[in-house]
Nucleic acid binder design. Sequence first.
DNA 1: TTGTATGCGTTATCAC
DNA 2: GTGATAACGCATACAA
Lengths: 359, 359
Amino acid sequence: MVTMKDVARAAGVSQAAVSYAYSRPEKLSEGQRRAIIETAARLGYAGPNSIGTSLRSGRSGAIGVMVMDTLEYAFTDPSTRSLLEGVVQTRRFDNLALTLLPLPHRGVPVAVGEPLSGDQAALRGLVDGVIVHSLPDDHPALLTLQTRGIPMVIVDAPRLPNTPLVGIADRAAANEQVQHLIQLGHSRLGVIAERLCPDGFSGIVDAKRRAGSTERVVRERILGYQDACQAAGVNFERVPIVEAGGFSVEAGMRAAHTLLADEDLTAVVATSDTMAISVLEVAAELGLHVPEDLSVVGFDDAPEAQIRGLTTIRQPMVDKGRLAAEILFALLRDEPKPDDISLPTEFVQRRTTSHPGSH
Amino acid sequence: MVTMKDVARAAGVSQAAVSYAYSRPEKLSEGQRRAIIETAARLGYAGPNSIGTSLRSGRSGAIGVMVMDTLEYAFTDPSTRSLLEGVVQTRRFDNLALTLLPLPHRGVPVAVGEPLSGDQAALRGLVDGVIVHSLPDDHPALLTLQTRGIPMVIVDAPRLPNTPLVGIADRAAANEQVQHLIQLGHSRLGVIAERLCPDGFSGIVDAKRRAGSTERVVRERILGYQDACQAAGVNFERVPIVEAGGFSVEAGMRAAHTLLADEDLTAVVATSDTMAISVLEVAAELGLHVPEDLSVVGFDDAPEAQIRGLTTIRQPMVDKGRLAAEILFALLRDEPKPDDISLPTEFVQRRTTSHPGSH
DNA sequence: TTGTATGCGTTATCAC
DNA sequence: GTGATAACGCATACAA
């Protein structure tokens, strides 16, 4: 590897002069600087090594986005994708590296020389700041990031003292989902949720599990469902809730099978469009017509929702990403910590909901 | 920041012992190791700092994907997105960071303290290896990456001696596009291409510019068009070629307007689905019916192509990403350099092509 | 089994 | 405007 020392020797100057040539041009005469840069080019020196610079400055020069689970998942999930889109839309990454930090939700390797999981990487200085997306409330990475003072913005969850949050009014928006169904005349509802706790569980959720959920967003949305039911005199304890244990259509379809085994349901509320689409798939398998036999309402308004004509709640994921990035850059510039941001949502009526028994 | 030294002092051991505790546990007694880890936890030490480790080891622990232009573009362009999907599908990034390196196509900052462009970042050691996607043949970054010996795999372009390439038979596949139109009876063809040279030009392309194109993929596809025309006795010099100067639908639409100003055309060949879709948009604006008034054939078979019913050439972008990642990891393991890989393509007939004047 | 010493490539601080 | 020197956090050869 060609280093500053090599360039210095070849140019007949000190190593410090070479350093100045790159990062403090004003401290050198124009001729000197030009001579040094030329020598560097001749030697194939590409400029100061990132690692060396980082070690010296304490900054890595990259921004991280910490995503749930694996990167494979991150690229599959429509809302994570929209989030990333928003992040890069800030144009701050036109010449700044963006590092995607996968965060397998279990097992924090502490003593092995293996590749780093995202939380460890962030903690260990691979990135200068992090945008965190939808982590469990009790994830150890967050506490450590915080005590280390690494600039961090949380999108969606959890809510942490002294850490900027970008989110929506989950409980109120979820309320709207159920209200819509109740107004249509439904009372035999079912709920499908992606994950209440990252412990591998999937299946019917009891009151205890509901209360102990570590995923703030899902927890609040279920509270919203409860609010709406209570307001309408529907006994929420009788409303079956099925947890998929994952975010994929496949996981959703397994849960949908469990939920639709209850043949009395006339409507399903989903905590995400992916879950809602899983229900549509399974309904088709079972020969149920939507919305005649079954109404389905999703959450997110992902691109797929539009294609499928899914009735849903629109939330501005792209804006979330954009705002989170802007806030993070403000933090990195040592600007004062902004307040939490709650973005507006909007109910979108499409073709998957109607009056019960409307055929 | 808590360092090894701090932990060592607090635990009453040497800094080396702390290092061993993390990366060479077998060199310490179990009790000693446990005591050190405990002290570390108490102090809020999160393990060896990435930067320090990198400096020592010469490895950064992240893999880079170098994309054309800005990250905003990378997340918009369907084929770049598919490529990334393939890369992460290898599951090698389940706990390994993936760094996206934007590569603005002009201006290599050489002496400023500003954020690094992708090529500089890679050259300066921010990542251990790079997947490069679709760069101009003469991009200086490539030569330097090569002389520096940074493991690198090229997807699509350019073709470089001694560097693994993952691509397709562009010339033959392009030939198929035109063949299809000619078989349908078209002879008044037009070509729309995203970019022949990253110099900001857009508009009608003359023979000289065609010959001087620095984008191998587009260059070869145009040769394929020429082959097909010559074989069918169509004078290729009369076939208008319009360059969009960008990869977006917006750039494409400007080019499509130029192209469709020639009212005699009965068919348009596009070097990408994005360009083809731009043509569809402009055709609709002009009141042209596709395929009755105008046939359009795209390239890629991006998700959008399916939705739009676009006749196109399918190329396995996801597989390209997957293979490129596997090859890069093989290189990083010092395995022998594999041969170039050419993946199969497939003509996909949909609803945007028909006989000329078929209404 | 543990501690000492050295160097990785860079930048900041001096005194010149 | 320049040149020596120390320090950043860590890993390893070597000595104890």
